Simulated assay, not measured.
Amino acid sequence: METIVFPFSSKFLWAKYLLVFALFISAKALIKLPINGTIPAVIVFGDSIVDAGNNNDLNTVIRCDFLPYGQDFAGGVPTGRFCNGKVPSDLIAEELGIKDIVPAYLDPTLKTQDLLTGVTFASGGTGYDPLTPKLASVISLGEQLNYFKEYIRKLKAIAGEEKTNFILAKSMFLVVAGSDDIANTYFVLRARKLQYDVPAYTDLMVNSAAEFVKELYGLGARKIGVFSTPPIGCVPSQRTLGGGIERECAEDYNVAAILFNKKLSSVLNSFKTSMPDGRFVYIDVYNPLLGLIQNPQKNGFEVVDNGCCGTGNIEVAILCNKLSPSTCTDVSKYIFWDSYHPTEKAYRALVTLILQNIIGDFF
């Protein structure tokens, strides 16, 4: 990896850099930040919603580095994003004016400059429950944290201690997990049902989430946004598996998601007292996505209960491939790309709405 040397020995030059950076970001940003507010990087952890290719070289079925994934990404290239195009972390960085995409930390073509503006450590199929990544043979949140520690060491080597501390304190950290715990580990595989009822299992999840956030804080993060779980019972695959013959939303899945979200919101709110110099932001995606599903025409969608890929009922990851029959010809009509993940168009609608509502909470 190429080494960049920055002239940080002079306080004047350091201050000048910050001023130029702030002006550059404000000029490009689509979302208006508070006066004197700056976000130099977007640093991401979690699951397939924000994985940009970290699973590509893993021995797992939870991967998507093949067409038709990425068909609408720049150049029509499958990058390992579980989408037809960009994923939320890309769109958030784009809206903030930082850069067009947030690359995977394990991408072998990762550029040195990308360390300065953010990467994603996310791994599709992981979760707060430590059993979840084991079942899927993917990267756990604990392992993602170890990669983050390595990232900090690299950042210090290329940018110095002062700038590294600035990046950690001012960047937007995003954590996106929980869906695979509820949908796969608990309901589909039933791997925890004998040990835990839903209230106890959501306690396990939220305790793990809380510890992860505290670990990030301990490593220097101060602006941490944690996504709620979505209405997971309404994604196409879970309608198929748990929604009965009519493929309605699987309400028991959604009840679990709502319970977890309530607990997550409460614990993040409590951190405002115990860690007052931090900003801990609960990011509600449950209600915005449910609104999109219940009122699709408002945003130009037509299909809510099937994905575009294949039949749209069950295909995801390796089951969604270039041999999948009946893949749709007009993805713009669909909220879901495969049977589990939204399309870029749906993500754009959600990100624009969500960012406008929560950006002030990071300052």
Results as ranks from 00 to 15, higher is better:
residue 11 K to F: 07
residue 201 Y to F: 14
residue 15 A to W: 00
residue 174 L to P: 03
residue 36 N to A: 10
residue 317 A to D: 13
residue 31 I to E: 12
residue 12 F to Q: 10
residue 55 N to C: 10
residue 234 C to A: 07
residue 314 I to V: 15
residue 77 V to F: 09
residue 136 A to P: 00
residue 172 M to Y: 06
residue 243 G to M: 08
residue 45 F to C: 02
residue 203 D to R: 00
residue 161 E to Y: 00
residue 313 N to S: 14
residue 209 A to M: 14
residue 60 T to C: 04
residue 122 A to W: 06
residue 339 S to F: 03
residue 87 V to E: 02
residue 84 N to K: 08
residue 230 P to Q: 09
residue 224 I to N: 00
residue 329 T to C: 02
residue 80 G to V: 04
residue 106 L to H: 14
residue 89 S to K: 12
residue 45 F to M: 04
residue 64 C to W: 00
residue 308 C to G: 05
residue 16 K to V: 12
residue 244 G to N: 11
residue 292 L to Q: 11
residue 145 L to I: 04
residue 93 A to Q: 08
residue 11 K to D: 14
residue 279 R to W: 04
residue 125 G to N: 08
residue 133 P to K: 02
residue 191 A to I: 02
residue 321 N to Y: 01
residue 119 V to A: 03
residue 356 Q to D: 14
residue 300 G to N: 02
residue 95 E to H: 05
residue 328 C to F: 04
residue 218 G to M: 10
residue 135 L to N: 11
residue 33 L to D: 08
residue 110 L to T: 12
residue 49 I to V: 15
residue 130 P to Y: 05
residue 151 Y to N: 05
residue 153 R to K: 13
residue 86 K to C: 09
residue 171 S to G: 07
residue 177 A to S: 13
residue 235 V to F: 03
residue 231 P to K: 06
residue 341 H to T: 13
residue 171 S to Q: 06
residue 65 D to P: 00
residue 116 L to G: 09
residue 25 I to Y: 11
